[in-house]
Amino acid sequence: MKTLNLGGKEFESRLIMGTGKFSSVEIMIEAIKASGAELVTVALRRFNRERPADDLLGPLAQLGITLVPNTSGARSAAEAVRAAQLGRELSGSPFVKVEIHPNPHHLMPDPIETYEACRELAKDGFIVLPYMPADPVLAKRLEEVGCAAVMPLGSAIGTGHGLSTAEMVKLIIADSGIPVIVDAGLRAPSEAAAAMEMGCSAVLVNSAIAAAGNPSAMAAAFAAAVKAGFSARAAGLMSRCDHAVATSPLTSFLTGA
């Protein structure tokens, strides 16, 4: 299968995983292994000596994956740039997921601050992956400032409403010269397959796996769906038709008419 290229780095897996909301580190590790993900997002928070088990760097370092520190908690471009620099210092990874969402009610990304942060971080040599509203104009602007991919939301973070932005995502894909990755809102593997079939280069999944009854089994299901969707896209889907087109001969076999 063709590899995913992000900022000059190649990846076999097209499923990127988030590490939030897991009930334990062990369950999270099992789910990452089952997903086959090579890119995994993490968040930065103040060190808490009462909760040493929260520190994920140790457990994740053993998996041989690439960390993608996010900028969650940032409300402005300046805060996001600072968070990205701290994430790079700690992880040694050039990747950053820019996410700036000032309103906890809907967690919609701030397009203006996101644009400013991405421009600065790309200039500074980061491999920038912005979480963004599904807006084709903004996607093009983010490509122009040097983002390695754009990550439009499928629906609001953690809602499980799936690909509610499908039409906009298709427009983004049609115009994009960089990979398009649906990030946020997916609930079922079929939605991940649908995103890949429409031409996404990867999907980023967190809640759908972390909040599943069996996270590692769900991670494996998402991995299979992403592969199926990617293969289907590569195979070339048949075109749609507004009227029926018979698959069997319609001549009467009795009369020959």
């Binding site: 988030g18 939030g20 968040a43 103040r46 929260d54 760097l57 520190p69 969650s72 946020a184």
Partner: peptide, 10 residues
């Protein structure tokens, strides 16, 4: 002084 670590995040 700010001391930061990685925790779970999407």
């Amino acid at each position: 002084i700010e001391v930061l670590t990685f925790i779970g995040g999407g």
